[in-house]
Structures are given as C-alpha cells and as structure tokens.
C-alpha cells in the first residue's frame, strides 16, 4: 500500500473534514468514525489521536502530547500516529 509510505511533514495540522465524525455509539458501546457509507470502529489509541485532529495542533504537537499523556516511547507513538493518518488520508477521512 502506497498509503503506508506517504511522507507526512511534522508541521501539518491534521483535521477531520466536514462529513467525517468521531462519535461514541451508545448502542454498541464503542467509538466510531463516521464517513460517507463508512463506519470504522476506533480503538482507544485511535480515539486519542483523532480527538486531537482538530486542524489546530501540528503532527509534532499531537505526538508530543500523546507521548506525555501515556508515558510512551516517542518513536513508537510517532509510528502509530503516522500509520493511522496515512490510512485515513488515503480514504479521504483526514485532511492534512
């Protein structure tokens, strides 16, 4: 997948475009990312990333925040965030 290899700059400010919504589904007790004809389950890590994709924070800031919040290895967080964003950019569910 070319999506995996999209180079994403540190300074981009990822955001969910209009028509893509992160929503808690009360019926199924899970978080979902809703888009045209798409329902993606969002796990705990994805939710934490996507909540920060407001178009205000840069990729660097998002990774810094998550690293601090979870006391995790920064390189690992960086890889996870980029992988998720690359996937969703290819699906046009995140804009950079």
């Amino acid at each position: 997948m070319s999506a995996e290899t999209i180079a994403i700059a540190e300074e981009v400010r990822p955001r969910l475009p209009r028509g893509v919504r992160l929503r808690h589904d009360e019926t199924r007790r899970e978080w979902t990312l809703l888009a045209p004809e798409r329902v993606l389950k969002a796990d705990r890590i994805a939710v934490e990333i996507l909540k920060r994709c407001t178009g205000e924070k840069t990729l660097r800031e998002i990774v810094d925040e998550l690293t601090a919040a979870y006391g995790a290895d920064r390189a690992r967080v960086d890889t996870d965030v980029r992988a998720l964003l690359a996937q969703l950019v290819a699906k046009r569910m995140v804009d950079l």
Partner: peptide
C-alpha cells in the same frame, strides 16, 4: 432509528 442503533 437513532434509538435502535442506526448511524447513517
């Protein structure tokens, strides 16, 4: 529909 779990 919303109460029954419909999303779209």
């Amino acid at each position: 529909a919303a109460a029954a779990g419909v999303l779209h």
